[in-house]
């Protein structure tokens, strides 16, 4: 088992990333705040612990692949990639601006971005294709694909879920950001996803449930998923939309808007306070 990074270091990193996300979105003047903040620990635990990757050589064929299917949460991915050294952190402030490689939804071509996404429901099929091709070539890589819970409304997700279990893709791990909100409201009111665990199980997947903000538990779940053979694994990560900022948490209206300058300052104060507590 890989050596785990210091947990306080990771917790601090998560807060730093949240601060960058808020600054990016505020400068951009638009974007998806809630769903970016909910996936920070999922990404930090992957990129700082689990993924075999090389920011200096981002197209290294032996790397593990991370696919952000819920493309609207790209501010979180961009911030993590910048912190990992895939590209200069200054580029973050160009989010959504004309000429920036940091498109409003991810586009292939930016170092560390594995797929273009934004039209929901498409990432898991692509992940299957990568996993199948890797198996065909005897490449021992792992493929991770992060979906939103609202995204599971898309039929293609379930087509892909069937494919992954049919082909017994145990080199594939899906993660559902179970933040319980989507753009129109609570998932259970928009179109009730019901018992997600049973749904995935009935599609032939092994299912792990985890607190999506508990870095240690997330790392445990990635290790556990890797050991499960003969079928794909999905990690249902229980998260809070807008996590880390009191007035954004669990607020549906924060799905698709960016903070205003004053809101950003207030949010940064909260996050700085959290940082001080950690120190």
């Amino acid at each position: 088992m890989e050596k785990r990074p210091d947990i306080i270091y990771l917790q601090k990193k998560a807060i730093e990333i949240r601060k960058d996300i808020l600054n990016m979105l505020t400068l951009a003047g638009s974007g998806h705040t809630g769903g970016s903040l909910s996936i920070v620990e999922i990404l930090v635990s992957l990129y700082y612990y689990k993924l075999k990757n090389d920011p200096v050589n981002p197209s290294w064929p032996g790397r593990d692949r991370f696919l952000l299917s819920k493309g609207h949460a790209c501010p979180a991915l961009y911030a993590v990639l910048a912190h990992k050294g895939y590209f200069p952190r200054d580029m973050l402030w160009t989010l959504r601006k004309l000429g920036s490689p940091l498109q409003g939804h991810p586009q292939l071509g930016l170092a560390g971005v594995e797929i273009s996404s934004g039209s929901l429901g498409q990432g898991l099929s692509i992940a299957n294709g990568i996993a199948l091709a890797a198996r065909l070539d005897g490449l021992g890589i792992r493929v991770y694909c992060l979906l939103g819970d609202g995204e599971t409304n898309e039929g293609q997700v379930w087509e892909a879920a069937m494919t992954a279990s049919h082909y017994k893709l145990d080199n594939l791990c899906a993660i559902v950001d179970y933040n319980k909100l989507q753009i129109d409201g609570f998932c259970c009111e928009v179109k009730d996803p019901g018992d997600l665990k049973h749904k995935w199980e009935s599609f032939g997947w092994s299912v792990l449930k985890v607190d999506g903000h508990d870095l240690q538990a997330l790392m445990d779940s990635y290790d556990c998923a890797e050991k499960i053979k003969g079928r794909p694994t999905v990690i249902i990560a229980d998260t809070v939309k807008g996590k880390g900022v009191s007035f954004i948490e669990n607020k549906v209206e924060w799905h698709g808007i960016a903070p205003k300058k004053e809101e950003c300052e207030k949010a940064l104060q909260e996050l700085d306070e959290a940082l001080r507590k950690l120190a």
Partner: peptide, 26 residues
């Protein structure tokens, strides 16, 4: 047969899967 993949009646999934394979050099 090893290089053939049936996806069932699921065209959207098939084209996504094909895209993933293409990203891997297929």
């Amino acid at each position: 047969p090893d290089r053939f993949f049936g996806l069932g009646v699921a065209e959207q999934d098939m084209f996504g899967t094909a895209a993933g394979m293409a990203l891997m050099g297929k």
